[in-house]
Design a protein around this nucleic acid. Structure first.
Lengths: 383, 383
DNA sequence: TTGAAAGCGCTAACAG
DNA sequence: CTGTTAGCGCTTTCAA
């Protein structure tokens, strides 16, 4: 006689994951097999290969499972045996929760989730506390591969990922890591196109607001050294694109003020814009390396009753929905597509020789926040 | 002599997760131990209990690991042994990717991620295709517990979760499942407060736009039967709250038109608003059970050059940022907090007798989209 | 401090 | 169609 108890009993004892788990897990595949007087293989087959045993037998097995409260093969044990976790890990620079704040990241996540969903793979958000250099979370993650979203080149978590014997694909940065697939856009070219748009309008005195360039908390002007030593290639490239565009009209990059912000938020952008305009009241255009910062700059302009674009041109980068709604002149990049491609690169079956570097196109979006420099300014620069 | 090869070799062979994985995993804890001529315990301790062996020996172990390209204990094997996966699973009604579209869901995710992060637990997004009733993804998930976000009472995935012998906490719905913790808000009371605000302004003829009420694709009027059989308690409660509020001023619920939309999107709201106003041109207020739908209704009003609130009052529910920016009159609920609490309920150590049902407060936000009914209308109803 | 033994729960050849 | 035999890679008493 078996000790029967209703299924309802099963899940009701575990009060908390952290405490000593009172959950009983009385039934295992083996115990079920013993109960039924069949082999473990047969029970396993009942779940994994229905065609390998007679229908009636299978029914008997499943019925007994229900009766004994056997929840089916343990996923972890199965994973160990099959060497497949059925999930991909996602590594983000910032705190996990930050990802849900940044619309560009959200778009990426949506695309990645789409790809995973389609492949029936789970998506494991790896809990990395941004500051703490504790990489155990990376070691703990039971996944078949990693997607790394836009981290610093020297990020310890990223290094830990590389040590794991699973395939990895990187979105945006770091670039050029040997053996690691990458998806991204040509940030430099995108920014160059935008800058040409500005120089074409007549702008010569521009100020730049950028995101974090490297480790360390710097809120304020970014010195040439800091720019040169930037460990965030994406920011580096965007700056380089601006530099390229200005060089075409003879503007020396050394004369272009660049302000950096550690936080990536609208508030930070607003604040940075204020600082920039205070230090350089003569600039005619504020080029921001992200829409979020640009949105902040727009807010600052509104606060000061500056007419955009008549008195000040403001531009962004990314093409997030909010920005487009605000009519921001920006460079649109296909964030959702990036996520999808990242997932596909990792999950796609077949082709060994598929491209391991995918560069998606960007598009210049001319909105209502860019215009010719204000008249006084043009007089001034005509001196 | 050991077969040495640089770490760089390790990760470079896995071309694709799906294909036969060419990744070599030459080193295991056992092989490392053999190599060093120590026991497996010692190697294990080197990683998990540094205090259990001499520093020099530990250094030797770690050095050999680096040399052999041993990436540290396999997380899956460890999980099997310790019976801890180090991750919580998240089950969503909709397609995984949808979660990143809905700002309310995003807020919830952010809060949940925060809690997980803090506890050092991963967050596994379980890939459920919404239509297909394939619950294998739930069985596959290597997690220590589940958070279920707002699913239908009879959702097969949810049922599958209940069979897993791990703790579960539900956000919003289903409610009242025995032994399962729940966090949510009092939707009915929240909607009642909003409705009183409207009746206080003088509204009597209102139309209601609501989200999916039950399985099955219904775009259009929701019959009383369908309302009665709703399997989404949250929607049911919100409708009930409106009903309560209208009853207080003598309006019979049977006279109140309710339109349902399967899709939850701004477009759907816009569309539903159009349909509602076409069928019931005399209504003075459009009560929507979500901000997203309300945003759509606002768009429809703008398209038709209807002045809000002079000619039409529009209200939402949730209090998402976009809505607040738009000045929507709505009921704000603490979505981030819900996520945090859900995570804490699952992960929190200690107290067995903590509250297993948490109801968070809502707040009526009176914006600029609600006002007194238009004059003609008041005449009309004064008849 | 270190090691030996004993599985965690399952799947996958390969025979019968 | 079913069972037997071997582990997957690791942790963990318990002794030495």
């Amino acid at each position: 006689m078996s000790h029967e108890f209703p299924v309802e009993c099963l899940n009701r004892y575990g009060s908390t994951m952290a405490g000593p788990t009172n959950v009983r897990r009385p039934a295992t595949l083996a115990s079920l097999a013993a109960e039924l007087g069949v082999s473990r293989t047969t029970v396993s087959n009942a779940y994994n290969r229905p065609d390998q045993l007679s229908a009636p037998l299978r029914a008997r097995v499943l019925e007994a499972a229900r009766r004994l409260g056997y929840p089916g093969p343990d996923p972890v044990a199965r994973s160990l045996r099959t060497r497949k976790a059925g999930a991909v890990g996602l590594l983000l620079t910032e705190a996990l929760s930050y990802a849900f704040r940044d619309p560009a990241a959200t778009g990426f996540l949506e695309g990645l989730a789409l790809a995973c969903e389609q492949a029936g793979q789970g998506l494991l958000l790896v809990p990395v506390s941004p500051d703490q250099a504790d990489v155990t979370a990376v070691h703990q993650a039971g996944v078949d591969g990693f997607v790394v979203y836009s981290v610093r080149e020297d990020d310890p978590h990223f290094l830990a990922v590389l040590e794991r014997p699973v395939p990895t694909v990187v979105c945006d940065q770091p670039m050029g890591v040997e053996g690691v697939d990458r998806v991204g856009v040509d940030d430099r070219a995108g920014m160059l196109a935008l800058t040409r748009h500005l120089t074409g309008l007549g702008h010569r005195r521009v100020g730049v607001l950028c995101m974090r360039l490297a480790a360390g908390h710097n809120d304020g002007p970014a010195s040439p050294e800091r720019q040169a030593n930037a460990t965030y290639p994406v920011q580096r490239d965007r700056l380089a694109g601006i530099c390229d565009g200005l060089a075409e009209v003879g503007v020396d990059w050394a004369d272009v003020p660049v302000h950096e912000r550690f936080e990536h938020s609208v508030d930070a952008g607003q604040d940075a814009a204020a600082a920039m305009l205070a230090a350089h009241p003569d600039i005619t255009a504020l080029v921001c390396t992200s829409d979020i910062l640009a949105l902040g700059a727009l807010r600052h302009a509104a606060d000061r009753d500056l007419n955009v674009p008549d008195q000040l041109t403001i531009t962004g980068f990314d093409g997030v929905p909010e920005a487009e709604r605000a009519g921001l002149t920006t460079v649109r990049q296909p964030v959702l597509e990036k996520g999808r491609v990242a997932g596909e690169l990792l999950l796609e079956r077949g082709e060994r020789n598929r491209p391991r570097r995918v560069t998606l196109p960007t598009e210049l979006v001319v909105g209502t926040t860019s215009g010719r420099p204000r008249v006084e300014e043009r007089f001034f620069s005509g001196w």
